[in-house]
């Protein structure tokens, strides 16, 4: 046998040679490489197009003034560029949203995964996910016209028409499905043997859910929280409509506030002359937003990895 193949190699034609060309392979390879390249270049492009005007901005305004002063009036005759009011605005609204979304989202997830009958789950999970499909502009008007008018005004008569509280509450409602759905996935992936083990020790349903299933699913749940928080920080429409466009250095949620995103949206859609310092400030704020979200993601990756190590 080996002698034969050796002789046919010697004779010129190797029987193991490729006889059929495989064009399909090359095409697939090309298309996939292109797809990967497009997303890579897009990210790169975004970073460059944000970075260059930002650097020009910081050539005129010092980073210290930008980060640590408290008046944000880029459109005034005597403009000031202290970004802190936008950061506190973002922070206050995000904290309110998170305070709404984490308990309700995690609660829904625990209910769906541990308590609901299979029939109830089949109806409830898609219903919850419909919430995620509602356009944010609808949420924005819901916050302004309904929550502020009919829910908050009777409780807090001094509340402003545009206020952080209604925007935060509604943004919280908006991210419930994200947190609930991803947390539920993580809990459903916990092996049923762990539940059996807890029940066999005389644990109640609540003790099983809270002390075994939730800790076992913690890395997935933390990832769900971080994704929800990132969505809240980046959300634009609800805050633009319901929280107003006044930069306001305050922690009082009954007042109007501007966030980083709503400044970008408002200034970007206004008639700011291209190349002016006001124009470049949009990108500086965008870069800051990008940096904050990036740090959040790094933290979440760390957390997820930490719990993975502990539990596997």
């Amino acid at each position: 046998m080996s002698g034969q193949s050796a002789s046919s190699v010697a004779g010129g034609l190797n029987p193991l040679r490729q006889t059929k060309p495989r064009y399909g392979e090359a095409v697939i390879r090309g298309v996939l490489t292109l797809a990967a390249a497009v997303s890579l270049f897009t990210t790169f492009g975004i970073v460059i197009s944000v970075l260059i005007p930002s650097l020009e901005f910081f050539a005129e305004i010092s980073i210290l003034e930008f980060l640590f002063t408290t008046t944000w009036t880029p459109l005034f005759a005597n403009p000031q560029y202290g970004v802190l009011p936008l950061i506190t605005g973002t922070l206050v609204i995000t904290v309110i949203a998170v305070l709404v979304a984490i308990p309700l989202g995690l609660g829904s997830a625990i209910y769906l995964s541990e308590y609901a009958s299979p029939g109830a789950r089949k109806v409830l999970k898609p219903t919850l996910e419909v919430l995620a499909g509602i356009p944010t502009v609808v949420f924005g008007f819901f916050a302004l016209e309904f929550i502020t008018q009919y829910v908050l005004k009777p409780i807090f008569p001094s509340i402003q028409v545009f206020n952080a509280l209604s925007a935060g509450l509604v943004m919280g409602i908006m991210i419930i499905p994200t947190i609930a759905s991803l947390s539920e996935d993580a809990m459903a992936a916990v092996p049923s043997g762990l539940r059996d083990g807890a029940y066999a020790l005389g644990a109640t349903k609540r003790q099983t859910a809270l002390r075994v299933v939730v800790p076992a699913a913690l890395s997935g749940i933390v990832a769900a929280f971080v994704l929800g928080i990132s969505r809240a920080i980046g959300e634009t429409m609800i805050v633009t409509i319901a929280a107003g466009l006044q930069p306001n250095m305050t922690l009082n949620p009954l007042q109007g506030m501007q966030t980083m995103t709503s400044y970008i949206a408002a200034a970007g859609s206004g008639d700011v002359p291209t190349g002016s310092i006001e124009y470049k400030s949009i990108f500086a704020v965008g870069l800051l937003l990008f940096a904050i979200t990036f740090v959040m993601n790094m933290i979440s990756i760390r957390l997820v990895r930490k719990y993975r190590q502990a539990y596997q």
Partner: peptide
């Protein structure tokens, strides 16, 4: 009590695994 086919230890420390039952009870 019950012991299962697959060892279903909880994703906790060795100590916490033993202490879980007495705690919940």
């Amino acid at each position: 009590g019950m012991v299962f086919q697959k060892p279903n230890v909880f994703p906790k420390s060795i100590y916490e695994n033993v202490a879980y039952g007495p705690k919940v009870n």
